[in-house]
Amino acid sequence: MRKRFRLRIHEALEQMYFLGVQSLPIVFISLGFVGLMMILELAFHMRLVLKHDALVPAFSAVLMVRELGPVITCLLLTSRIGAGIAAEIGTMKVTEQLDALKMLSIDPFDYLVVPRWVGSVFAAISLTVVAIAVSLWGGALLAIQKLGTSSGEYFNTVFFFVKFPDVIRCLLKAAVFGTLIPFIASYQGFRCGTGSAAVGEAATQAVVRSSLAIIVADFVLTYLFYAI
């Protein structure tokens, strides 16, 4: 039993590296540009409606922490790992590797899903933190260049509007989304039919359903956190 536990930890660490660390570049680049885009868009609309853009950093940061940070990060994570998990488990089913695990009295759920779940939650939370940091820094650079805001002004406004509970809720959202991805993708893999077409279909469905689940879960969580 002791050996078995150690092996699962090793698997979980592998998944953390694969799902988290290897997803860094795509999250870094994507959320950096999202941060820049938000500053431009919010500045345009605020000047149009409010005739000034002093609150652009605050609105941008609040939107990023409450919604876009965890949602976009986890949608990117879904496209990167959801299909991979479903295809990997689906292929293992088609090639009787799942049967081989069962023959060895190893529960495929314990062996395949749990480490991916641990890795995915770790990846979702840590990548969301990185994503928000990157987008805020990107936004700060653009705000300083284009809006004439000083860095002190920018971060003071951000920290005034973004409260600690927002950050906790943001991380909770990331954890929930990080849970949905491997469970939905694994489910698609386990119920995969026979043949390569079935594996492809499982991978596609994993991405579609995980993405949909993230968007619905985001609405539910936002409603629970802020509307009740």
């Binding site: 050996k3 078995r4 092996l7 292929t91 088609v94 090639t95 009787e96 590797q97 049967d99 081989a100 023959m103 060895l104 009295s105 190893i106």
Partner: peptide, 28 residues
């Protein structure tokens, strides 16, 4: 105490040939 070989091999393709054999030993 019951072993089976599979029609579609059932070999773990993420493990090397040697690891395919050490894996059951380490697990069980």
């Amino acid at each position: 105490r019951v072993a089976m070989t599979f029609q579609r091999s059932g070999l773990f393709d993420s493990l090397s040939v040697l690891e395919n054999l050490t894996f059951p030993l380490k697990e069980l």
